[in-house]
């Protein structure tokens, strides 16, 4: 739930909003730009103090609300996230990278030096960490907005909630609930399609099942997920290969602790505990 311990400036000056990028594809920041009509409304409510994707104006901190996109993958980023935290009254991470390492967290399951040697002609120029981690592994985070990319409606909801000091309506339940609210026919039960929906955090509105595809967990693990039971049924009843199970646990949120542990357990070869 949301912490209300920090106050947002409400006097003569407008609250200062800052958007920060770490290791990421910029897609979540784009979700903010994609708000179009609401973007003007947002600009009326806040002073956009730092948002490099939209403007080269950079105002000094402190900031009332910082939106952080991207994971922490370099020593420089480790330092920078701490600085931003120190300058931010409220820090909200947005997207799979910032909340659970992103697709680049696949390095966590291998040797990053091997990748560097394979990709770069001059590996000596590369200064990177062995892991890709969410911001929450480095600093206190006030709220995590999941998704790859995030849903712009949910982003506006979170910003509105923080501006008006109320809890954001971002339920942590399964994608299945969104499917059922929408009247979708369950692709798992009715078609035998492996779907990550039952362990995945809601937020997308169950887009993939609505188009007869299985969910592939863009929003990371839901509250209280049971990955073991899901993996067991995928393999025993839906005929999924172990590799498929691991791939789905390691899509965009592989560093989410639940998915990380579950995928390592699958790799370890046993489907028990």
């Amino acid at each position: 739930m949301v912490q209300h311990s920090r106050t947002i400036e409400t006097a003569e000056t407008k609250p200062k909003l800052a958007v920060w990028k770490f290791t990421s594809c910029d897609g979540c920041q784009l979700s903010l730009l994609d708000c179009e009509d609401e973007l003007l409304q947002l600009a009326e409510q806040v002073e956009i103090a730092n948002f490099m994707e939209a403007s080269s104006v950079q105002l000094p901190g402190p900031y009332d609300l910082s939106l952080v996109e991207g994971s922490i993958t370099t020593p420089e980023e480790e330092r920078r996230i701490r600085e931003i935290r120190a300058q931010s009254r409220v820090l909200v991470t947005i997207g799979a990278c910032a909340t659970s390492g992103g697709i680049q967290a696949l390095r966590n399951f291998a040797e990053v030096d091997d990748f560097i040697a394979a990709v770069y002609a001059h590996p000596e120029y590369i200064d990177t960490l062995k892991t890709s981690t969410p911001a929450s592994a480095h600093v206190a985070v006030d709220f995590e907005l999941h998704g790859c990319p995030i849903n712009k409606r949910q982003l506006l909801e979170v910003i509105s909630a923080f501006l008006h000091r109320r809890p954001p309506q971002i339920p942590a339940h399964s994608v299945c609930i969104e499917c059922k609210l929408r009247g979708n026919v369950c692709v798992w039960v009715a078609h035998g399609t492996p779907c990550m929906g039952p362990v995945t955090h809601a937020g997308c509105g169950a887009i993939c099942p609505a188009y007869n595809r299985g969910c592939y967990a863009c929003y990371g693990p839901k509250e209280n997920p049971n990955t073991d039971s899901l993996c067991h049924w995928w393999q025993q009843e839906l005929g999924a290969e172990k590799a498929t199970v691991i791939e789905n646990l390691r899509n965009f949120n592989s560093a989410a602790p639940i998915f990380d542990v579950a995928s390592r357990r699958q790799e370890g070869g046993d489907d028990q505990d």
Binding site: S174, G197, P198, V199, P225, N226, D228, S229
Partner: peptide, 9 residues
């Protein structure tokens, strides 16, 4: 509880 996904279906 070992099997239930608490997915609410």
């Amino acid at each position: 509880a070992d099997r239930c996904l608490s997915c609410a279906n």
